[in-house]
Design a protein around this nucleic acid. Structure first.
Length: 514
RNA sequence: GGCGCAUUCGUCUAGCGGCCUAGGACGCAUCCCUCUCAAGGAUGAGAUCACGGGUUCGAAUCCCGUAUGCGCUACCA
């Protein structure tokens, strides 16, 4: 590692990083991952993470975006130290509220002869582009206004044209961009356009705005998407023109579509926003864990990281320069791991509440405050905690618990299962009913005791050849399905009355059948 | 079209010149556990490190070309 890189990744100086989205809708999961990297690096070094809103394109604003952005970050646990409506020493943190500053900087560079007013109309720009393309030249601005005479300027102003401001790119030499994860990039200055830095409506473009703000807000590491790499040389030139120190640049690769699909992760066939994953039943800790591992690794074997682990172990230099494909199967695995092995029953059940309400299994009021029903709901959720991948699967897995016994619908032949005849299955049910009716509460509510009690009936009383024959009919009778949660757990969760009633109902239907 | 970045099992990755006959994980297959489904445990298939040239005693690791992928080429970010 070079000395410069060493300094850039040093943890002895607190880093100031930022997430600077445009309020143009729900933030894309790829941008969110970039935000995660920026957050982790700031926290790892004991620095600050800044949220800044880049709303300089008035045409693309989408109502409610800011709330979406804030909610996405909050849900994932990415709290920002400075930002809109939170404030901070370098506010405001919304670019449309900083116009004076951008315009002042633009004026300054013009006065220093490093930028100029451009009076070209969109029509002329378009014509120039077309002409260049027809001549098989690279498209771009022809620098027509770069050396306008005083008369020409006056004439344009007299016409009422509102000029833009363009940066005067040096005609000769080359510019080098140093990036922490991508190799140094050197380009000939002659290939760079005189980009617009201030639009005719008085708003800055990204090139000016982000740079001024990063400088003013003392951002030390610019962590952004790789789509910015081609314009990074321009940014370096502007920094140099301004005489400002260039922050450490880190261009993070994009996230690609899953195997089989081409291109960047797109919403056509995939969920691309944090809120979508939330609705699909993914846990924030799992999404965070997964996203971080998409393009970053700690070592050759660690897969699970809490936010705390990540803050401790995250290194920007270990971000992969290669775009990664989004692989939902791994996300599922990670999510299942958190549900099955990290969450406790109480926590899990609480997180299931909104999904149960959404599916109509419980009422919205109960989801808000389950009250007396909480132990029952919790027990129901506990039944499937170890088999579910996402929270949204829970309702369909346990709705049978909430239905009245008579509402369970299933083919009577399912009850027979491994038994030879409906009569045999009915016999099993009868024995189970008799047992469960009479057993004392301590036994009824003890999983192990129930198991041995039923096993005893199977082996000694009914002389069945395997336990499956004993457990199958009650399983179907209680759940109405052939794939169900643990039998003992269902018996306990349903309670004695409901259990016996369901078993009895099933027994009757078998008797009618035979 | 031009410019740029990238390239290790299907996927995410470890690897920063000899420890690599390339390691881990997801997924897949088989087996074990077992009252169904999961979970868990074990085993296995799966990459001549995109391809072709160099450099070197020695290359997945360095250099150059080609191919492929991705990005940029706006008064959008």
């Amino acid at each position: 590692m070079t000395e410069e890189a060493n300094k850039a990744t040093s943890t002895s100086t607190p880093a100031r990083t930022r997430y600077a989205p445009s309020p143009t809708g729900n933030p894309h999961i790829g941008n969110i991952r970039t935000a995660i990297f920026a957050y982790l690096w700031a926290k790892h070094t004991g620095g600050q993470f800044i949220l800044r809103i880049e709303d300089t394109d008035r045409k693309r604003l989408v109502e409610g975006s800011l709330d979406n952005i804030k909610e996405s970050l909050s849900w994932l646990g990415l709290d920002w130290d400075e930002g809109p409506d939170k404030g901070g020493p370098f506010g405001p943190y919304v670019q449309s509220e900083r116009l004076d500053r951008f315009q002042a900087v633009a004026r300054q560079v013009i006065e220093e002869g490093k930028a100029y007013y451009c009076y070209c109309t969109p029509e002329r720009l378009d014509a120039v582009n077309k002409a260049k393309q027809a001549a098989k030249q690279a498209p771009g601005y022809d620098r027509h206004c770069r050396n306008l005479s005083e008369e020409e300027k006056q004439a344009a102003l007299a016409e009422g044209i509102k000029p833009t401001v363009r940066f005067k790119v040096p005609l000769e030499g080359s510019t080098t961009v140093n990036d922490l994860i991508v190799k140094p990039l050197t380009v000939e200055n002659s290939t760079i356009q005189d980009a617009v830095i201030l639009k005719s409506d008085g708003y800055p473009t990204y090139h000016l705005a982000h740079l001024v703000d990063d400088h003013d807000m003392q951002v030390t590491h610019v962590i952004r998407g790789q789509e910015w790499l081609p314009s990074a040389p321009l940014h370096v030139m502007i920094y140099q023109a301004l005489g400002w120190e260039i922050p450490v640049l880190i261009h993070v690769p994009v996230i690609l579509n899953p195997p089989g699909q081409k291109g960047k992760l797109s919403k056509r066939d995939n969920a691309v926003s944090v809120s979508q994953y939330r609705e699909l039943g993914y846990l924030p800790e799992a999404l965070l864990n997964f996203l971080v591992l998409l393009g970053w690794s700690y070592d050759d074997h660690t897969e699970f990281f809490t936010k705390q682990d990540l803050v401790e172990k995250f290194e920007v230099s270990r971000i992969q320069p290669t775009p990664a494909k989004f692989n939902i199967e791994k996300l599922d695995w990670i999510n299942a791991h958190y549900i099955n092995h990290v969450l406790d029953v109480e926590d899990f059940a609480r997180r299931c509440l909104p999904f149960l309400a959404e599916a109509g299994v419980i009422s919205p009021e109960e989801a808000q405050d389950p009250g007396d029903k909480w132990p029952f709901i919790r027990a129901a959720c506990a039944l499937v905690k170890d088999k579910v991948k996402v929270l949204s699967e829970v309702p369909q897995e346990i709705d049978f618990i909430f239905k009245p016994a008579a509402a369970l619908e299933y083919p009577a032949k399912d009850l027979v299962g491994k038994n030879e005849s409906p009569a045999a299955a009915a016999g099993v049910l009868e024995a189970a009913i008799n047992f469960l009716k009479e057993v004392p509460d301590e036994v009824y509510n003890d999983r192990e005791a129930l198991l041995s009690g039923l096993s005893d009936i199977s082996e000694n009383k009914l002389k069945l050849t395997n336990r499956g024959m004993m457990f199958w009919p009650p399983r179907v009778a209680l759940s109405g399905r052939t794939k169900s949660p643990d039998l003992m757990a269902m018996i306990i969760a349903l309670g004695r009355d409901e259990t016996v009633q369901r078993l009895e109902l099933a027994r009757q239907s078998l008797l009618n059948q035979s």
